[in-house]
Structure formats: C-alpha cells, structure tokens
C-alpha cells in the first residue's frame, strides 16, 4: 500500500513539472510535437528508474551520516559524507547517461540517430537530478526506506514528467491554429498553458489509499 501511495503521489500530486517546475527547459523546448515528446519522455523515465535506485544505494550505504559505520565498524560513527551527495549524484547520472548513449549507439544505430540530440540533454535535465535530491530528502524524513520504494518513486516521477510533456505537446499542436497575440506566441503562451494545467492538477492533492 505504501508503494502504491508513493507511486500515485509522485505522478499526480508531486508532479515534477506542475508542482516543482523540474525539467522545464527541455519541457518548453521539446514540446512542439507529440512524437518527439513521447521519445524524450520515455528516455527520461528510463534514466530516472535507473538512477534514483542507484543513488539510493549510494546514499544509504556510503553518504548518510553514520552509514559507513554500519557495515565497516572500523570507520568512526561520526563520519558524515553528506556534503558530497551533489557531486556523487550528478556523477552517477552523467556516467549512466554516457553508458546508455554508448549501448544504444552500439546495438541500435537507428534509435541512436532518432534520440541523438536528446541523450546529452538528459544528463542536465533537472527532473532527474531533482528526483535523486527528493529521494535523499524523503530518506531523511523516513518516508522512503527500501530499495523497492525508491524504484517506485523513480518510475512515478518519470511517468509524471512524461505525462506532462505529452499533454503539453498535444495542446501546443492545437494552438498552432489559434489566434494568439504576436507577443505571446511561443514560450509566452507555453508558460501560461503550463500554469493553467498546474492549477488543474491541484485537484489531485490529498488523494490517498
């Protein structure tokens, strides 16, 4: 039940885009057609499902205050590597994205050429770094305490971002036929649409199982 709650929460209530504005740069830039939005959303969800649990393991067993002491008794209990978490998380993410890029390039050149421009973008997508940082915060608060839950959280956050960018792309495809004031065309109207969608998403707050 706890996992289901985390899953629903991370998709609808704590939606990466509408509640926290994570990944806005690629969200605005790549939401011009549904097809590319689907591709980028899938890639982000995949990277998120992999990196959040990886970072969870690193945080739980190495970075947390007193974590090293728990399995290497020789290390004093006062050792606190928490300040390293930013650099460790971003290194994991960048290395993982590089790995995915190399694997895709080797085994599926067609997919590689389709995703080409998106893959490097993913390493600096704030949604992914944000997922890991929120995971860290949730572990500290005791809301997330197993590897399985971190996988569920990564999956939910990724799917939430995917949902948001595909919805946005669908709306933007329609707005090309509308009469929008010249100064609002492009990013201006995109921001206002996102704001209105965010207000609509506020309806989900408080859902629990």
């Amino acid at each position: 039940m706890e996992s289901l709650n985390i899953f629903i929460r991370s998709i609808f209530i704590d939606n990466m885009v509408f509640a926290f504005f994570f990944g806005m740069c690629s969200y605005i830039a790549v939401s011009k057609s549904v097809k590319t939005a689907l591709g980028l959303g899938a890639a982000v969800t995949f990277v998120m499902v992999m990196t959040v649990p990886l970072n969870y393991l690193l945080y739980e067993y190495i970075l947390r205050p007193g974590a090293l002491h728990a399995w290497i008794p020789a290390v004093p209990e006062s050792v606190d590597l928490n300040f390293l978490s930013f650099i460790v998380f971003i290194a994991t993410i960048a290395a993982f994205v590089q790995l995915v890029e190399m694997i895709v390039e080797k085994f599926s050149p067609t997919l590689y050429s389709q995703l080409g421009i998106f893959l490097p973008l993913i390493a600096v997508n704030c949604a992914i770094m944000g997922g890991s940082l929120f995971m860290q915060q949730k572990v500290d608060a005791g809301e997330l305490d197993t590897l399985w839950q971190s996988i569920v959280y990564g999956l939910g956050s990724g799917l939430g971002w995917w949902l948001a960018i595909v919805m946005m792309a669908a709306i933007r495809e329609k707005t090309t036929y509308s009469h929008i004031p010249a100064a609002l065309k492009g990013p201006g109207i995109a921001f206002i649409i996102t704001g209105l969608m965010g207000i609509a998403f506020m309806i989900f707050s408080g859902i629990q199982f």
């Binding site: 509640a19 100064a183 207000i199």
Partner: peptide, 26 residues
C-alpha cells in the same frame, strides 16, 4: 502562493517584454 501562478507571471512578463521588443516575436 501556489506554484502555477509563478508560471503565469513569467508568461505575462514575456508578453510585456516581447510587445516592447518586436524583433523577439515569433
């Protein structure tokens, strides 16, 4: 105080800015 309003305000800032700088309009 809710997050969506920040987006709408930025949208309005872009609107004002672009109507004063016509060369930026799409």
């Amino acid at each position: 105080l809710f997050p969506p309003m920040a987006l709408i305000i930025v949208g309005c800032i872009i609107w004002v800015h672009r109507s004063r700088n016509k060369d930026l309009q799409e």
